[in-house]
């Protein structure tokens, strides 16, 4: 974008369109709010661990309620809950993003591949995705995690990704089927363009909005699944996430001990992160599909 700025007149309409899109994006309150919350979490994940101090450091303040010294109180062994919460942001986001990236890549390959190839390949791939869709993910993940236990973060990420690609593969397949017959794709075929080029240049860019939205939902799903797994003690407890915090809180009977400051914040963070991601996704939908916008009288509307 910046490179085109100096060329004076011809770029002007394009710039105006770009600005208009940005203004539209910011006009969607949901998108702005979601992006804002997301930015806070991302920043925490990047720089938080350096600022928060050692989350495992024990002190003599055992199981204390929130105070000036410990903003969110301490655990049974005197660890600072706030420090743990900040450090866990990184672990949670890393697992969520990694699993979502893998799931999205798999769904793009299977969904677009199947939809574009058609025939037996499509029938098979679509059957596999439909089966993965109806088989409940978490019981499978729990059983697998229980079998391969103690295998660190990578196995958690893979197991989550394995069970979460199917829904988005189905959406992408449907969209590819509809794009495949469009005139410009047919034109590209007539030109004799290579298949991979048609997929990468003609089809993939047109599905970017869907892929982004599916990716966002994959992150939410991964964060929730990881939290569930960790809560059951099926994730590496040395790798601190909001889920592992809840696992330790549950094991130390924080609930019956009344230590709400220990188990409320991690869940609240998960929910806030998920809500922010959903808001971004819905905000994008709103920007792209005007019919979904809430009718709000605006001053100076054209």
């Amino acid at each position: 974008m910046t490179a085109t700025l100096p060329t004076a007149t011809p770029a002007a309409p394009e710039r105006a369109a770009g600005l208009g899109l940005l203004r539209l994006a910011l006009r969607s309150r949901r998108l702005a709010l979601g992006l804002g919350v997301l930015a806070v979490f991302a920043l925490t994940a990047v720089i938080g661990p350096w600022l928060a101090g050692d989350p495992d450091a024990v002190s003599v303040d055992l199981g204390q309620a929130p105070s000036g010294a410990h903003w969110l109180g301490t655990t049974q062994t005197g660890q600072d809950v706030f420090a743990q919460l900040v450090v866990s942001a990184r672990g949670t986001l890393v697992i969520g993003a990694a699993a979502a990236v893998i799931a999205t890549v798999v769904s793009v390959v299977i969904g677009i591949g199947g939809g574009f190839l058609g025939g037996v390949a499509d029938e098979t791939l679509s059957l596999i995705s439909n089966v993965f869709l109806v088989i409940p993910g978490l019981p499978l993940v729990i059983v697998v995690a229980a079998y391969v236990k103690g295998d660190g973060v990578l196995s958690t990420v893979l197991v989550i990704a394995l069970t979460s690609w199917a829904a988005s593969a189905r959406v992408l397949r449907a969209q590819t089927l509809s794009l495949r017959g469009r005139d410009y794709v047919l034109a590209a075929r007539v030109y004799g363009e290579k298949r991979w080029r048609i997929v990468l240049v003609e089809i993939l860019p047109n599905e970017l909005a869907i892929i982004v939205s599916q990716f966002i939902h994959a992150v939410i799903f991964a964060v929730l699944t990881q939290a569930g797994l960790a809560f059951l003690g099926l994730a590496d407890p040395a790798y601190l996430t909001w889920g592992t915090m809840l696992y330790f809180a549950q094991n130390a009977e924080a609930l019956t001990g009344g230590a709400w400051w220990w188990f409320v914040p991690p869940g609240l963070c998960i929910a806030l992160l998920g809500a922010a991601l959903s808001l971004v996704s819905f905000g994008l939908d709103e920007v792209l599909d005007p019919r979904l916008r809430t009718r709000r009288p605006r001053k100076g509307a054209r």
Binding site: I220, L224, A227, G228, F231, L246, F263, P266, G267, I270, A271, L272, L273, G274, A275, L277, S278, L279, F282
Partner: peptide
């Protein structure tokens, strides 16, 4: 969206 992102167990 907030409720949907709340983990059931939490």
């Amino acid at each position: 969206t907030f409720l949907a992102a709340v983990p059931y167990f939490w």
